[in-house]
């Protein structure tokens, strides 16, 4: 049996990718299961999905903790979390990036496959939907399933939902990715400090779960504690405010869903710790003082 963990963002189709891969493996006579992380994440939030493949019935129902393969649909995720967590010793990570494997810096050097799935998706589908292209790279990097099975699975799964033409386009994206995938070894040494979790035992657990505000070793909890949850890593686009043009009207301050714009000396200023990059501020700015650009992360 081997296990795959998919990292993406809510709405990017990581779950569909995990399911399509399971279907591809099934079409080759395997037994395969696929499931999302059962959370309540919203669109844009980092999410995970899993696939297990074996040549006999898979009975285990736990979540996947030590995957053989890790697939990263969104490059920005490797900056904020250790996607290699639990990856088996000889495991492989497959990343959607324009960079070569040797240029990717992770927590440790591992077998790494890279492909510009976003570029391929934009070229073939006209939209940056990468969940099919990445499957081609996965097939190439692992050699576990034939690309033909991946194509067939995509046509069945996506074709049924989006129409035959769309199914074929998505299959073509996978094929292109398969052909363009580079395999090598990543750099290591990138450090991550995992956010500690507050896990009270039964004696510490508040009665009925009621909480006020508490400072714990895991940070602030309770009333107003979301302020320590930095949602800036959800962002793909980033606003830049031209202070010269800003007229101090406060529209962006008022409309920002995060409430992460403040007024400093009469001018708007974004707190990027929270900004999810929705672009409302730019769209509503009467002075056209805010510009959204695709964010390039370190």
């Amino acid at each position: 049996m081997y296990e795959i963990r998919f990292h993406g963002r809510g709405g990017q189709g990581g779950k569909m990718a995990a399911e399509a891969y399971a279907l591809a493996a099934f079409l080759e006579g395997n037994y395969a299961v696929s499931f999302p992380f059962f959370g309540a994440e919203r669109r844009g939030a980092p999410v995970k999905a899993f696939t297990r493949v074996d040549d006999k019935k898979i009975r285990i129902k736990t979540q996947v903790y030590e995957p053989d393969y890790v697939v990263v649909l969104d490059e920005t995720l490797i900056e904020t979390q250790d996607v290699l967590e639990g990856l088996k010793k000889d495991g492989t990570v497959i990343i959607n990036t324009q960079r070569k494997p040797e240029e990717v810096r992770l927590s440790k050097p591992v077998k790494c496959a890279t492909v510009d799935a976003t570029g391929i998706a934009l070229e073939v589908l006209g939209r940056p939907i990468t969940n099919t292209a990445i499957l081609g790279a996965l097939a190439r990097a692992t050699g576990r399933v034939k690309i033909e099975s991946v194509e067939q699975a995509i046509m069945e799964k996506f074709g049924a939902r989006l129409g035959r033409e769309s199914g074929e386009k998505n299959a073509r994206a996978a094929r292109m990715a398969y052909e363009q995938t580079l395999v090598g070894t990543s750099q290591g040494g990138k450090e991550f400090v995992p956010r500690p979790q507050w896990l009270p035992d039964v004696h510490e657990m508040p009665i009925g779960g009621a909480i006020g505000t508490m400072k714990t070793e895991a940070g602030l909890i309770g009333i107003g504690s979301f302020v320590e949850n930095k949602t800036g890593d959800w962002r793909t686009f980033i606003p830049a405010i031209d202070k010269e043009k800003c007229i101090g009207c406060r529209f962006c301050w008022f409309y920002c869903p995060e409430g992460c714009i403040s007024m400093v000396e009469g001018k708007a200023e974004v707190n990027y710790d929270y900004c999810k990059g929705c672009g409302i501020c730019a769209h509503e700015c009467p002075a056209k003082a805010i510009e959204m650009t695709r964010e390039v992360k370190a």
Binding site: G11, R42, F226, N229, E258, G259, N271, G277
Partner: peptide, 12 residues
């Protein structure tokens, strides 16, 4: 109602 909440980007 603090930032750090987990609504989708652009939620009304």
């Amino acid at each position: 109602f603090t930032p750090g909440h987990t609504a989708c980007a652009g939620c009304g």
